[in-house]
Amino acid sequence: MAYVDPAKNEHSLYKGVWIFAEQRERKLMPVVYELLGEARKMADKLNVEVVAVLIGDKVEHLSQDLINHGADEVLLYENKAIKNYTTEAYSKIISKMIEEKKPEIILLGATHIGRDLAPRIAARTATGLTADCTNLEIDEEDGKLLMTRPAFGGNIMATIVCPNHRPQMSTVRPGVMKKAEEDKSRSGKITKFDYALNEEEIRTKIIEIIKEAKHDVAIEEAEIIVAGGRGLAKKEGFELLERLAKKLGGVVGASRATVDSGWISQAHQVGQTGKTVRPKLYIACGISGAIQHIAGMKDSEYIVAINKNPDAAIFKVADYGIVGDLYDIIPKIIDSIDNIDELEKII
Rank of each mutant, 00 (worst) to 15 (best):
D132E: 07
G143Y: 09
T125R: 12
I138V: 14
A131N: 04
N135F: 10
L129N: 05
L117I: 06
R124N: 11
G128Y: 08
E137Y: 08
A123F: 11
N135S: 14
I113L: 14
A118F: 02
R124S: 10
T134H: 04
E137I: 05
E141Y: 11
D139K: 09
I121T: 05
T134P: 00
D116Q: 11
L129K: 01
T125Q: 11
I121V: 13
R115W: 07
R115G: 10
E137V: 10
L146G: 00
E137M: 10
E140Q: 13
N135Y: 08
E141H: 11
D142E: 13
L129R: 02
E141G: 01
E140F: 10
T130C: 10
A131Y: 07
R120F: 03
R124E: 09
D116H: 12
L146I: 10
A131D: 00
G114V: 12
R124Q: 06
A122S: 11
N135H: 15
R120W: 03
G114H: 09
P119N: 03
I113G: 13
L145H: 04
T127W: 01
G128A: 13
A131W: 05
T127Y: 05
T130V: 14
E141P: 01
A123H: 08
C133M: 11
L136M: 08
A123L: 15
N135P: 00
D116S: 15
A123N: 08
E137G: 04
A123I: 09
P119Q: 03
A118V: 06
G114A: 13
A131R: 05
D116T: 13
L146D: 00
A122M: 04
D142L: 11
E141C: 07
C133T: 09
R124W: 00
L145K: 02
R120P: 00
C133E: 06
E140T: 13
C133N: 05
T127R: 13
R124D: 07
C133W: 02
L136K: 03
A122K: 05
N135A: 13
A123E: 09
R124M: 08
R115I: 12
A131Q: 10
A126W: 15
T130E: 06
L146S: 01
L129M: 00
R124A: 05
A131T: 15
D139A: 10
P119I: 07
D132K: 06
R115V: 09
T127M: 11
A118N: 06
